[in-house]
Computed example of a mutant assay.
Amino acid sequence: MQHTTPITTLFLDIGGVLLTNGWDRASRKVAATKFSLDLAELEERHHLTFDTYEEGKLTLDEYLDRIVFYEDRPFSREEFKEFMYSRTEPYQDMIDMICQIKSKYGIKIAVVNNEGRELNEYRIRTFGLNKYVDFFISSCFVHFRKPDADIWRIALDIALVKPEEVVYVDDRALFVTVAEGLGINGIRHTDYATTRDKLAQWGFPL
Rank of each mutant, 00 (worst) to 15 (best):
K102N: 03
C99Q: 15
S27P: 03
Y70C: 10
D134M: 05
Y132P: 06
I98Q: 01
V142G: 04
P74H: 10
L206D: 14
I107F: 06
L182R: 12
E62V: 00
F11H: 12
F75M: 07
F35Q: 10
G128H: 09
S103M: 09
D148C: 03
I187D: 04
D170L: 03
D93E: 15
H46M: 02
R66D: 08
E62T: 07
R28G: 02
P205D: 01
L206A: 13
L48K: 15
N21D: 12
I98V: 15
T88A: 14
K57Y: 00
I184Q: 11
D148Q: 09
A110N: 00
T4Y: 13
E44D: 14
G128V: 09
T195V: 10
I107N: 06
L129H: 01
E79C: 13
F136D: 00
D93F: 00
T49Y: 09
R153D: 02
L129T: 05
V178C: 11
P74G: 09
Q100S: 14
T194L: 13
E71W: 06
K104I: 00
F141V: 08
T4V: 14
V167L: 09
C99W: 01
D197Q: 15
K104V: 07
S76D: 11
L64G: 01
T88Y: 15
E44H: 15
T126F: 06
K81D: 03
Y122F: 15
A31C: 09
T5Y: 04
T33G: 13
R28W: 04
D93V: 00
M97K: 10
I151A: 04
H143Q: 11
Y132H: 06
A40T: 13
P74L: 11
F35W: 08
F175M: 11
V166R: 00
L64I: 02
A193L: 14
L119C: 03
Y168M: 10
E41S: 15
E115R: 03
I109Y: 04
I14H: 04
F50T: 03
A110P: 03
E89L: 13
T33P: 01
G181P: 05
L18I: 10
R77M: 01
V167K: 07
C99I: 14
I184F: 11
I67D: 07
N113A: 14
F69H: 05
L42A: 08
I154H: 07
R117K: 13
F141C: 05
K102A: 01
E89M: 12
C99P: 02
P90M: 10
F11K: 12
I187Y: 06
H47Q: 15
S76T: 15
S27W: 04
V17Y: 08
N114G: 03
N120C: 06
V112W: 00
S27R: 10
F50R: 05
S103K: 14
P90E: 08
F144C: 11
A173L: 13
D148W: 02
K29V: 05
F50Q: 07
I137Q: 07
Q100R: 13
A26L: 08
D24H: 06
N114M: 00
S76F: 10
